[in-house]
């Protein structure tokens, strides 16, 4: 199905809907709460709305430049600077896991449902320790 934002006028809703970025940030916070890296978790994302959500929640520090961050949340491969390519990266679609070999996890849609996956060997390579609470989401390799 195709939904073209430009074609649809703003749909008048009787009651407001939940904002997906808010819930997305909750999910990412839950994941990051259950991992540990060798330094403080400082988040940068190419999705500005997501950064605003993290700032509002104030559970994690955020960075305005990717170079100042320790974990990057990426929606597009083009949005990452060369200097940041070696950092721990969490991606927002499954194809990026293939495109960015050092990315260690993803939130992605499959069969109409959102999923989380964390690639254990990649996390290990990034010196990321994963809590056993995330065991259900661990995979040895990408599908």
């Amino acid at each position: 199905m195709k939904i073209v934002a430009g074609i649809l006028t703003l749909l008048f809703t009787l009651f407001g809907h939940e904002h997906t970025d808010d819930i997305k940030a909750d999910i990412l916070e839950k994941v990051f709460t259950n991992i540990s890296i060798n330094k403080e978790i400082i988040i940068w994302s190419d999705n500005e709305n997501l950064i605003l959500e993290f700032k509002a929640k104030a559970n994690f520090a955020t960075a305005s430049k990717c170079s100042d961050a320790s974990i990057l949340i990426l929606e597009s491969k083009q949005n990452i600077d060369k200097e940041c390519q070696e950092k721990a990266i969490f991606v927002m679609n499954y194809a990026l896991l293939k495109d960015i070999p050092q990315s260690f996890g993803a939130i992605f849609w499959k069969k109409g449902r959102p999923n989380i996956v964390i690639i254990a060997p990649r996390a290990k390579a990034n010196s990321i320790k994963i809590s056993e609470k995330l065991d259900d989401y661990l995979e040895e390799k990408i599908w």
């Binding site: 649809l8 819930i23 999923n115």
Partner: peptide
């Protein structure tokens, strides 16, 4: 319980496509 699976369900529900196509008028 605000577990990851519940959050994923909330995310799915908040992003249901009918919310982008439903026309109240």
């Amino acid at each position: 319980e605000v577990g990851l699976n519940n959050l994923l369900s909330q995310y799915r529900e908040a992003g249901e496509l009918y919310k982008e196509t439903k026309e109240e008028k």
